[in-house]
């Protein structure tokens, strides 16, 4: 009895102690509920024949019919393949290049040089995709582009340039290059923040033991970066069934001839529904993306937990 009383007093004291923190948490909680959870109500649209007159709850339930258009033709297979493959390649590349650049950046000692590199590498991340699309066009345009005019015709002396916007085979490389060029600055920053948190004494001890730079990276930097890498990879896997609409729609200039390598689920949905404006089908596509992302996150986390329990997210 006495013990229970004591525990109750301790809980009340604890609550009073943490009250300011709970209050600070409230705006964030409100944001999460309003922005992330309340819209979940609209998920039912994916299973309904939405009528503007009947509203969301009054529209007729039609099962999985709204999902059918996502799997109706061979285009569906291409778009799923493109979406998944691009994302997987970019996640791997993002990790490798992000860490490499972060380590190189970490070694730069001059303050001015550091500022210059930081700005230069982060600048593309801040650019709108429309601007990026026109930059790419300035390089790739068949008649006026820099590559065809100055390099292929000018330097190599060839008579005809490459029709970049008519040949689908070039676009996996072009899109990968643009994606990495644009996102590497931000990815690097995340790894750099973790690098800055590593105690210098590890490196000093390693140097005293005669470790080379590569050995220091392999045995100190990478193991200590592991939690950050795992967290970022798992979070990125949540977006594995989504694509950057601007990158896949604006940059290839919406050229039909390039669809084999530029069509992703987002561009497919946009092109298909531009004509019908069907809310239920849009909701179905979005719902499927979320479900696939959720499955990927949970699976990846389960694998990580099995390998190393402390590194898993949840």
């Amino acid at each position: 009895m006495n013990g229970k009383k004591k525990r109750g007093t301790r809980t009340r004291k604890g609550f009073r102690h943490y009250l300011p923190y709970y209050l600070m948490f409230l705006p964030g909680l409100a944001y999460l509920i309003i922005n992330n959870y309340m819209p979940l109500y609209g998920l039912q649209l994916a299973f309904k024949n939405f009528s503007y007159k009947k509203g969301i709850s009054g529209s007729d339930f039609i099962g999985f019919k709204n999902f059918k258009f996502l799997f109706a033709t061979k285009d569906a297979l291409i778009m799923v393949r493109n979406t998944l493959l691009y994302n997987i390649v970019w996640i791997v590349l993002g990790v490798v290049l992000g860490i490499t650049v972060a380590i190189l950046f970490h070694e730069v000692r001059g303050k001015k040089a550091k500022r210059f590199y930081q700005t230069a590498i982060l600048l593309p991340y801040l650019m709108s995709m429309v601007v990026v699309a026109y930059l790419a066009y300035a390089y790739l345009a068949s008649d006026t582009g820099l590559i065809n005019n100055s390099i292929i015709k000018g330097l190599l002396g060839k008579e005809n340039g490459v029709s970049w916007y008519m040949e689908a085979k070039y676009w996996p490389f072009i899109l990968t290059f643009i994606n990495q060029w644009k996102s590497i600055g931000f990815g690097m920053l995340l790894y750099l923040a973790s690098l800055l948190g590593i105690d210098n004494s590890y490196y000093e001890a390693a140097m005293l033991d005669g470790a080379t730079k590569w050995q220091q990276i392999r045995t100190i930097t990478l193991p200590l970066l592991k939690p950050t890498i795992i967290m970022l990879v798992i979070l990125n896997l949540g977006h594995v069934f989504r694509s950057d609409f601007g990158l896949f729609y604006q940059v290839p200039m919406n050229q039909g001839t390039l669809y084999a390598t530029t069509q992703t689920i987002d561009t497919y949905v946009y092109r298909a529904l531009m004509q019908t404006n069907n809310m239920g089908m849009s909701a179905a596509a979005s719902f499927l993306q979320s479900v696939v992302g959720f499955i990927f996150i949970v699976s990846a986390n389960a694998i990580v937990r099995k390998l190393d329990k402390n590194s898993s997210l949840f």
């Binding site: 109706a72 285009d75 039909g256 001839t257 069509q263 092109r271 529904l273 019908t276 069907n278 089908m281």
Partner: peptide, 26 residues
């Protein structure tokens, strides 16, 4: 076209894919 929204959407996508090449004589 309420009962054919799936087909109409997919057809629109096919037209968007093929027609520019044919129409532009590429």
């Amino acid at each position: 076209d309420a009962d054919y929204q799936t087909e109409v959407s997919v057809i629109a996508n096919v037209i968007n894919e093929y027609m520019p090449t044919l129409q532009s004589g590429l």
